[in-house]
Design a binder for these strands. Structure first.
Length: 301
DNA sequence: CTCCAGGTCGTTG
DNA sequence: CAACGACATGGA
């Protein structure tokens, strides 16, 4: 039990802000909320389960990766949480592009863009269309229970942690029926999900290929999947393929960008284009600070 | 009961 | 090409 991996004085990072800003859906808070400065989560990602906590340290925050060795941190979680990127520099560049964002960033200074597993990210954002975040999380969980690798009973040792399986691999999800997926409460998205799983399982849609294409070419390729439009494709590019130049525009992003920049009803495509022009290769990261700010403040509603 | 949700598809003008 | 309703499901 003493094989925990500990990081102290981490800057520009908050586990809570990073997980709860709408970019990922396969996690569960497992602490009882008694300590207002401490957060503890159970996460299913990268083909593993992670139990992790954060609390303040002398000069930043302290992360405890429970039952995790040095190898696993260095090869899996460091990349997953994007801890190699200098977010101090990223934030300075964003504020330089628009000084008004300084106060917005200061409301959630610990957000980082996760590097999620490609297939889970693709399916998760197909599910996300016309659904609210709690329901997206539920469908992701149902699909995992349906056909993902089950968690060993002996590893379910955190109270409140009620998810029991990893997200399925492409071939696992491709082998179930459309009705099975409907049974996960996916609704009209079921055929989209099956189409995506089939294309990835067969190699028709390949992560390796997407990674060597340009962002525009990869977006085009992703949109060949039924149920994947501009917004979902941009989420996959940003959250799982490392394309921080991709700028997803949803209803919230439309509202806040209209409020801050356009002052009138503006097509999503125009918003995407202008924001990418303004923030360049880190537009997607700027988008994440804007998104949570707009949602918290209920901008435009 | 009605309305809407991190959209996208298929159909019309 | 812009506009518009349909689409499952659940919560306000």
């Amino acid at each position: 039990m003493n094989n925990d991996y500990i990081l102290e004085d981490i800057k520009d990072f908050s586990l809570k802000e990073t997980l709860e800003c709408g970019q990922c859906f396969h996690f569960s808070r497992v602490d009882n909320g008694e300590n207002p400065n401490k957060y503890e989560y159970d996460i299913a990602a990268c083909g593993r389960f992670l139990h992790i906590s954060e609390e303040p340290s002398a000069n930043g925050i302290k992360l405890t990766f429970f039952d995790t060795d040095n190898w696993e941190y260095e090869h899996i979680w460091k990349k997953y949480f994007d801890l190699e990127r200098d977010y101090g520099d990223v934030k300075r560049r964003i504020v330089k592009a628009d000084p008004r964002l300084a106060s917005i960033i200061s409301e959630n200074p610990g957000i980082r863009i996760l590097n999620q597993e490609f297939f889970e990210c693709l399916i998760s954002f197909i599910i996300s269309q016309n659904k609210q975040i709690p329901q997206i999380k539920q469908v992701v969980r149902n699909i995992s229970t349906l056909c993902g690798d089950k968690r060993g009973a002996d590893s379910i040792r955190f109270f409140n942690s009620d998810f029991d399986a990893l997200f399925p691999r492409p071939e696992q999800l491709a082998s179930v029926t459309e009705d099975d997926i409907r049974g996960c409460k996916a609704g009209f998205r079921a055929p989209y999900i099956l189409d995506a799983a089939t294309k990835v399982a067969s190699g028709e849609l390949s992560e390796k290929e997407l990674r060597r294409l340009s962002t525009d070419e990869a977006r085009e390729k992703l949109m060949s999947v039924k149920g994947v439009g501009e917004k979902v494709a941009n989420c996959v590019l940003l959250y799982s393929l490392g394309r921080t130049d991709a700028f997803p525009v949803d209803v919230w992003m439309k509202r806040i960008c209209e409020e801050l920049y356009f002052h009138t009803d503006t097509p999503k495509a125009v918003i995407e284009e202008k924001m990418c022009e303004k923030f360049g290769d880190i537009a997607g990261i700027a988008q994440q600070y804007l998104f949570i700010f707009g949602k918290d403040k209920k901008i435009g509603v």
